[in-house]
Design a protein around this nucleic acid. Structure first.
Lengths: 262, 262
DNA sequence: CCATCTTTGTGCACACGTTCACAAAGGCAT
DNA sequence: ATGCCTTTGTGAACGTGTGCACAAAGATGG
């Protein structure tokens, strides 16, 4: 009913910028690799290179967490691993349920990255009765009917949706009603959720389309005949006069001017 | 001072903001759904609701493409579908290769979202010889040895990496050398690529960690925050005299951690 | 103890993205 | 036609993110 507003003032004086939060896992991964090689300290320059970011950005990011570095030396790897882990909430265990055990859901269940940090697959749930009891990644699939019970008994607050698009909103509603407050959505649909529930979306199709846009730009726009122009000709413009802000109109196609890429 | 840095504004060129490009697929999906229901026109308000964004943002996004709406009426659905498709480069066919046919790679190959819009799985590639020839999603897996040939013969410019982290950079280098200029990376590693190559990353672990951060924050708001109830004891504070281990200098790139399971 | 060198932490300026608010544009009824 | 009503397109204000550049902080060596 209500449009899901993820809007949230948040970010008080103590709040960490969202962009920084999104990079913390990146730093953590690089630091973990250093830790496994028993590297005691690391400079912002080195760590930034490993994480693929600017060193100034990294230092500013860390400044939001506190002053954990030592000037002239760098950062203590173990200490920083702990601080970031704590900030991200990875020092506790997060039970997770995966709903929709198709190709993708099964792949997610088998993905080692889940268990590696604080996340534990508490249950696999699918609507297909023939799947019930069948083990996937060593965990027996349970039926959707028991969704609410599973959530409550395991204290699950993070749910992963890997169902077809048509079922996603319904599953989402049930998850939220049962107490889930964070959702990772793999279904190609926009989910509406009440305030206080976080949704993150992973959409393969969208990522590819973004790449295609840049790819097209790189290829230069003049030669359209490179591939197969299999799509229908341009649809009829709206009934009224088509107005263009661009004066260089030379026809239905070829109006995107070439722009120097980088 | 007086460095006279020649930073040309250039923002007024025909470049579409990156944030807008990232939303175009979202609009396109909503429009396609409307098209299938034979809805002739749609207002910015309605479409924005369907796409889960602000209507002002949507109108501004569309304004970068041109004036395709009709005041007092809205947007012609079919026309807009075509315009966005063209802008995203979806009016042509994009052959894609998937490298690394494990759990995730197989799931990606089976994912219907690929074929739905302009993207065609041209080949599946895996390093395991026992996989070679085995059909996945109706396509026989080919061996990594033939990677370069496959890329060139099919004119592939978009590659999907679903290998373990340890192999990702090597695969990436070969893809780029063979002519791929856009990469969608599912391996939990930072890829380095030359200029002109686009990389987009999809990382399940990172998404979960971001959710965990917000989840922890929500839990802390209720219970007086502070949250010192965690498990592991804090690591030692930054040690004073830490001497740099100089012998382990491995150059600018300290990669190849190889910490991913299958 | 002092000089020097390295590296952090951050003020500042700029670029990018979002939202508001409203004039202009067009349809529609009379 | 004319006037009203709806909705777009966009200028401007505001907020967020990024990168430079440098002073402060601490280590290191004499």
């Amino acid at each position: 009913m209500a449009t899901g507003r993820t809007h949230r003032p948040a970010t008080r004086s103590r709040g960490i910028p969202e962009a920084t939060v999104a990079r913390l896992p990146l730093y953590l991964r690089a630091l973990t690799a250093l830790s496994e090689r028993s590297v005691p300290t690391v400079s912002s320059e080195e760590l930034a290179a490993a994480a693929g970011v600017n060193s100034a950005k990294l230092r500013k990011d860390f400044s939001y967490l506190g002053s954990y570095g030592t000037r002239g030396v760098g950062y203590d790897v173990e200490y920083l691993v702990y601080q970031i882990s704590r900030e991200l909430g990875l020092t506790q265990d997060w039970p997770v349920v995966i709903v929709g055990i198709g190709n993708l859901g099964a792949a997610l269940a088998n993905y080692g990255g889940f268990a590696s940090r604080g996340f534990r697959v508490a249950a696999l749930i699918d609507a297909d009765p023939s799947m019930t009891g069948k083990p996937v990644a060593g965990i027996p699939v349970q039926h959707t009917d028991d969704l609410e019970t599973i959530i409550e008994e395991n204290g699950v607050s993070i749910g992963v949706i890997a169902t077809p698009a048509g079922a996603a909103q319904q599953v989402c509603d049930r998850l939220v009603a049962a107490g889930v407050t964070s959702i990772l959505n793999f279904a190609p649909t926009v989910l509406s959720v009440p305030d206080g529930v976080d949704v993150r979306k992973v959409d393969l199709s969208i990522e590819l389309q973004i790449l295609a846009f840049h790819e097209q730009r790189k290829a230069g726009e003049e030669t359209t005949g490179d591939g197969t122009v299999d799509t229908a000709p341009p649809a009829a413009p709206p009934a009224a006069t088509v107005r263009r802000t661009d004066g260089t109109d030379s026809g239905p196609d070829g109006d995107v001017p070439a722009v120097m890429p980088a």
